[in-house]
Design a protein around this nucleic acid. Structure first.
Lengths: 377, 377
DNA sequence: CTCGAGGCTGAATCGTATC
DNA sequence: TGATACGATTCAGCCTCGA
């Protein structure tokens, strides 16, 4: 039905409603999207404002100041205001999306629940939530929470009955050591040479997304020649990756400076040859294993005694994966160092469990956990 | 204030409003929670249904909320019903939660966005969203989506101004190779011997959570002796882990069969040894020591020189425990901040005494004073 | 040229006790 | 209740600089 309306509209006003490909439209995304013909876009990637609600300054332990995202475009008066904004751009996106098209939205816990609820309320059909795990997130400097090490993407079709959307399952599986592609992706944040900087070395955009992330999205859910729309174009990562991978892009951006930077960036992109456009191999899990995991898995019991190779020192395993030496509690490495009076110690090889009459280093348990971790990428 | 109301209520109706510890309450969670005294629970773990029939009708396992519903209004009605249900139990939880208490909710993309939005609407303050990554998820058989390899937990405090919630940062870090704990957790799903089965081998509960997951939640955000509430108790994983780790539990479960299975399961749990679950000493909670005490004890002489780690600044210790930098006199923290041109400084770790050719932070003397105090009781 | 030390930075809702 | 002082707190990765 949507495509019939599309055809009719096109035949009436072919010029004004043609699709402006490989272009950055400058203006508010809702207004600009209303100028596009309906059902003309194959894939939408949206990185809307997160509505961070930051209170005061945050300093690192060395007292340096964290350069926070405090831009005006990220400020909303209330959740209600944010919901109205979200609903408006989602409706605009919905109109231009082909019946077979899909939508990706990225966010953090500040906004993603609002976005997900709005998507469902507007009849979008969620296909997956996909977690972008960061290899190198900003730490939690005050030790008051878990390191915020991921962001969430929602992948949705237009409706529950949407069929025929693009999902390049075979290629993704082949690029993932013949394992099914999972809903958690491990990708570094954007920094180094990829990060756009002004001549004075200041970052052009506070939240530039890594090209590897967009590449995975486009290779997963679009085909060469598809039209990819980004209603919050920012520094233009979506456009740069689309051009590189042989997709068309449409960007909408309100800020002229961002748009100019994106324009220059995309102009410099050299498209890849068709045969080289394949899924990038998935990044494998760093093989780091925590002793708390060994305890969690029941490989070493809480309350168990660990000793060194000559049984000169004995410690108790705690349920949280720390060791207790008298009243001193710490990591396997730290406690190993303390009992020896040294600065450092490899607890994995230093500490042993009794295994019959013999001793077995706790390192042997690490391999079991490693095998699990390797499977999960 | 909440605790005052609590106290007053207790004096009026001491029996009906006492906290039923280590018990499974059978009934609707909202009705049962209303019988509990306010501000009586330290931690809530909730695994709510995402496919709920509010009238208590039979559930069709295959029926998700929007499936087969084309009419947008009906669909909204359906989400609206879920939102009303969510709001009701969250409000009931809010009442029984202590001001310092926190709430965990687990869900998938079917319901977690509704839950997260409701949390925010009710003024809960999200601390983290935490991703449970599964080592062994159910594969996606049709190859039309990414393997759904994770679930999402939301960790929230009662409000933006909530202080003093429990987060065992140092212990978690020590159990994690001395690295900060992250928001993505890799844990296997519950199967094998841990999975509750009937005599005929049928699984007792369709969504039994792994004990390792609950253990990490409880070890992260509760202390031994805390009261842990699970309003959707199911097969009782929360209770089993709470008992094992020396926490009290309160479970609410509507289904008598689930409750009976949970009861039997928890009865069989043997608690861990006290030494393996005792609260780990945290620096934040260590008794304060004044630098003047260090000088009084003769651990640092009046007139001694203190320097920073790189010997860029030098100050003189005064008999009253203050430092003199030229004509400026102040605390170890204040002077440390001034010489660096910063507005804050931890003088204990900044200032050092010469120890032969090396430097020793004055923090080491604080440890000595604390050890003395501990011996003296 | 290489190598190591040190500096810098990233979508962040990042105190508490005492007076 | 508000002001003040104490004092706790970071990981990965890339860059520059100097030996």
């Amino acid at each position: 039905m949507a495509s019939q309306r599309n055809g009719a509209a096109l035949s009436l006003r072919p010029v004004s409603l043609s699709v402006p490909l490989d272009t950055i439209l400058i203006g508010d995304c809702v207004a600009e999207l209303e100028k596009l013909p309906p059902a003309s876009v194959d894939l939408v990637f949206a990185d809307p404002p997160y509505n961070l609600q930051l209170q005061g300054d945050l300093r690192r332990p060395d007292q340096s100041l964290v350069d926070a995202v405090d831009d005006a475009w990220d400020q909303f008066e209330s959740f209600q205001a944010y919901d109205i904004f979200t609903r408006a751009w989602l409706l605009a996106v919905r109109r231009v999306l082909k019946p077979t098209g899909t939508l990706w939205v990225i966010g953090s816990y500040h906004n993603i629940f609002r976005v997900g609820s709005a998507l469902q309320d507007l009849n979008f059909w969620i296909l997956n939530d996909v977690v972008w795990r960061k290899t190198n997130p900003m730490p939690n400097f005050r030790g008051r929470r878990f390191t915020n090490a991921h962001e969430t993407m929602i992948w949705a079709a237009k409706g529950a009955d949407s069929k025929g959307y693009t999902f390049n399952y075979e290629a993704l599986k082949a690029g993932n050591e013949d394992l099914q592609p999972r809903s958690d992706w491990l990708i570094p944040i954007c920094n180094g040479a990829e990060r756009l900087k002004s001549e004075s070395g200041v970052k052009v955009h506070p939240t530039q997304k890594p090209e590897a992330l967009l590449a995975r999205v486009l290779l997963s859910a679009s085909k060469p020649g598809d039209v990819v729309l980004d209603p919050f174009f920012g520094s233009g990562t979506t456009g740069a990756v689309a051009k590189r991978l042989g997709r068309h892009y449409i960007g909408v951006e309100r800020d002229r400076d961002y748009a100019a930077a994106a324009r220059a960036r995309i102009d410099a992109v050299v498209p890849e040859t068709e045969e080289s456009i394949a899924a990038a191999p998935a990044k494998r899990e760093a093989p780091r294993v925590a002793f708390s995991t060994v305890v969690e898995r029941g490989l070493v019991r809480p309350g168990a005694r660990l000793v060194d190779e000559r049984r000169r020192h004995e410690v108790v395993v705690r349920a949280d994966g720390t060791l207790a030496h008298g009243s001193v509690v710490g990591s396997i490495h730290r406690i190993g160092a303390i009992v020896q009076g040294r600065d450092a110690c490899n607890g994995w090889t230093f500490w042993h469990v009794e295994d019959g009459a013999a001793l077995k280093p706790i390192d042997t348990f690490r391999d079991i956990v490693r095998a699990e971790a390797a499977r999960a990428g």
